[in-house]
Design a binder for these strands. Structure first.
Lengths: 324, 324
DNA sequence: CTGAAAGCGCTTACAG
DNA sequence: CTGAAAGCGCTTACAG
């Protein structure tokens, strides 16, 4: 069923049908008749014909490194809602942590006439090294939690420094003095977390040992146990990710330390994981909903109003639960 | 940059360009020349033009109730990989647990010329009540973990009964005698879990109390504490979902019961949640990867070979960890 | 408010 | 192996 058949059955031209489809001016009576014919026939306009004949389809591309990861999945969900609210569709590209593979994805998306691109997550700090080879990718782009020097990108960044300073002062207030700082991935965002915590610790007179490990429960647990064995003294483990915080809890459990009396743990991202732990883990909420809203705003502002790329910051807050 | 410009620059007709694009027979030398021109110009074929001019685009629709939910996100990730392997694209529709809203989604997908539909999750047990209004939705459809009486659907189901029977016999072997069975959602899959467990309990002489609560840590915890207060005696909590199992662990913690010595806990789905707990929760793995592979196979077999709808079962297994 | 016609960028018989 | 031409199903000036 296409627009010609609808037009014929309604006794109008295809131009008129197109107008009722797109809210053009049509005599009310005619509009009703056309709508009825459409409904009766369960007519669905072809997205392809539409996309082919218009230059400005409302569609953007979302690139995520891993859709099976809870944090990214939540972002996609927020972006989905926000874009829908604004009448935009999106195509999703799951890059599977493979920047090379992402290249094909860019072309694929350009073939879909995306008007803009959103890169989700700090893994895309360096995406411009790949993108720079393509002159034709010249739509507005925004990095969500990814840092960029490239002026073509808008950025939505999280204020990790401030919140991590507040973590330090909070620990100080509660009487903790020696900390272990645990992180996994080296990227801009994680660099700022560390920087903020070290800065805050200095201001508050806390001692800090820094340790790096893989991003898994067991690796974090081992890292904490190792530090213990080596005689490093600490009563608080501050982490760059909830996964590491859970690992630290496991270490505390094994060492038979009481949390939070003998041992504090702080996570980052405030995911469901922190609630499933007993006691519930204090963690930083980076406000992903706000991050996503801002990303969509920046992108649509560039697309529709030609606004130049910008950088926006979104605040975080420490959600105090039972481990500090 | 379109196919005309490529053709002109390469000194051939657009038909020839189209042939190199689609692997038609073209003299090798000509093919190379065309490819070079394409590369030089970073040419990307328009997905819309292609979609408009072909009847059989390799695209299917995936419907999920909530992309932000870890279990569904994993499914999407597996389906994504499997479809890509088979040269298919997909469009994703996030129904947000709203069957009514899903209706629009079906039309939207039909406009994308999807050749088939995959419904993820047991929330789509009843989707035919909504779909039945549409004569035009007549592509092959498969329900992943959703039960259907409607012969238009293929189904990929999980063998919950068998695995839950094995849970009962496992509990028996370990000396547990009285169980609390906890579940939240009423659907086909959960019905079978309960049925299997009750059956297995009977065979093994276990006593079972059944209780229902909301799907949250706190609700499950309260349900367990309540049962305790009421004097129901049980040394094992078997659940229909890992979330409930975590709640049961919290209850055990509050009651100062040792797990698994005094108290066993069994989850369902074997999600990351079960690993973050201490001790790690024994849980049923329903093999989501195999479920997704099977769903894609069934769907593509219907699309490409006109195969009639079928029902396939995928086995589950109990992953024994530290709570039983 | 309405229609005829061109155009969007491909694919695909049909000839050669 | 290659090309001319029709067709896919819409939108959009342009006239009226």
């Amino acid at each position: 069923m296409n627009i010609y058949q609808i037009a014929e059955e309604a006794g109008v031209s295809i131009a008129t049908v197109s107008r009722v489809l797109n809210g053009g001016s049509v005599k009310e009576k005619t509009r009703q008749r056309v709508l009825e014919v459409m409904k009766k026939n369960e007519y669905t306009p072809s997205s392809y014909a539409r996309g082919l004949s218009r230059a400005d389809i409302a569609v953007v591309g979302i690139v995520v490194p891993d859709i099976a990861d809870l944090f990214h999945a939540r972002m996609v969900s927020f972006l989905d809602r926000e874009l829908q609210k604004n009448g935009y569709e999106y195509v999703l590209f799951n890059s599977r942590y493979d920047l090379e593979k992402a290249q094909q994805g860019f072309y694929w998306m350009m073939g879909k006439k995306v008007r803009g691109l959103i890169f989700c997550g700090s893994m895309f700090d360096q995406v411009e090294t790949v993108l720079s080879q393509y002159r034709r990718i010249n739509v507005p782009m925004v990095k969500l939690l990814g840092r960029s020097e490239d002026p073509r990108f808008s950025q939505v960044l999280s204020d990790e420094v401030e919140v991590m300073k507040s973590v330090a002062s909070r620990l100080k207030k509660r009487g903790y003095k020696n900390c272990l700082y645990l992180y996994s991935l080296e990227n801009y965002s994680n660099g700022r977390k560390k920087e903020g915590f070290l800065q805050g610790s200095e201001e508050n007179g806390l001692s800090v040992n820094v340790s790096r490990c893989d991003l898994s429960f067991d690796a974090a647990k081992e890292a904490v146990l190792d530090a213990y064995k080596k005689g490093v003294s600490f009563e608080a483990v501050v982490t760059a990710d909830d996964v590491l915080a859970v690992g630290a809890m496991k270490a505390a459990h094994e060492l038979k330390l009481r949390v939070p009396e003998d041992f504090a743990v702080v996570g980052y991202n405030n995911m469901l994981l922190t609630e499933s732990s007993t006691p519930r883990i204090t963690s930083v909420d980076c406000n992903p909903e706000e991050l996503c809203k801002t990303a969509v705003q920046l992108l649509l502002d560039s697309i529709e109003n030609g606004r130049a790329p910008q950088t926006k910051w979104v605040g975080c807050r420490l959600v105090e639960k039972e481990t500090i």
